[in-house]
């Protein structure tokens, strides 16, 4: 594998990992922030608290779904780029940097 392709592959993997971990970190903040008003609503009479709990469940599931789809799309994109780099590596006749230790 040429040095350039090796590094590009590394860059793609690093970017993929950054987006995935970044999405998880933002999801944690999003969930924690959204939890605050629901905590207040929990203290109210059951007429409000019960539907609020239901709304919170729906909201949590939606948030988790959105971030999971970001992670999924990222994994697919990384895999696709990997395949493209594989193809490019096969076509590349030679790279002067490829002798690099």
């Amino acid at each position: 594998m040429s040095e350039t392709i090796k590094r590009l592959r590394g860059l793609v993997a690093l970017l993929g990992s950054t987006v995935e971990n970044g999405a998880s970190a933002v999801e944690r903040i999003h969930t924690a922030t959204a939890r605050t008003p629901f905590r207040v609503l929990e203290q109210t009479p059951s007429l409000i608290a019960t539907p609020a709990a239901l709304v919170e469940k729906v909201q949590s599931a939606t948030v988790a779904g959105v971030y999971e789809s970001i992670r999924l799309i990222t994994r697919v994109a990384v895999k696709a780029l990997d395949v493209a780099l594989d193809a490019a590596d096969t076509e590349e006749p030679n790279d002067p940097e490829s002798s690099e230790g």
Binding site: M1, R7, R9, G10, L14, S99, E100, G101
Partner: peptide, 26 residues
């Protein structure tokens, strides 16, 4: 992030090499 790159076998991780005139020395 070098230790992470090395641990995950990432192609961006540099290996220790001797170099001369900007090229690696086998």
């Amino acid at each position: 992030l070098g230790d992470y790159l090395s641990r995950t076998n990432n192609g961006l991780a540099s290996e220790m090499t001797f170099r001369l005139h900007g090229k690696p020395l086998p």
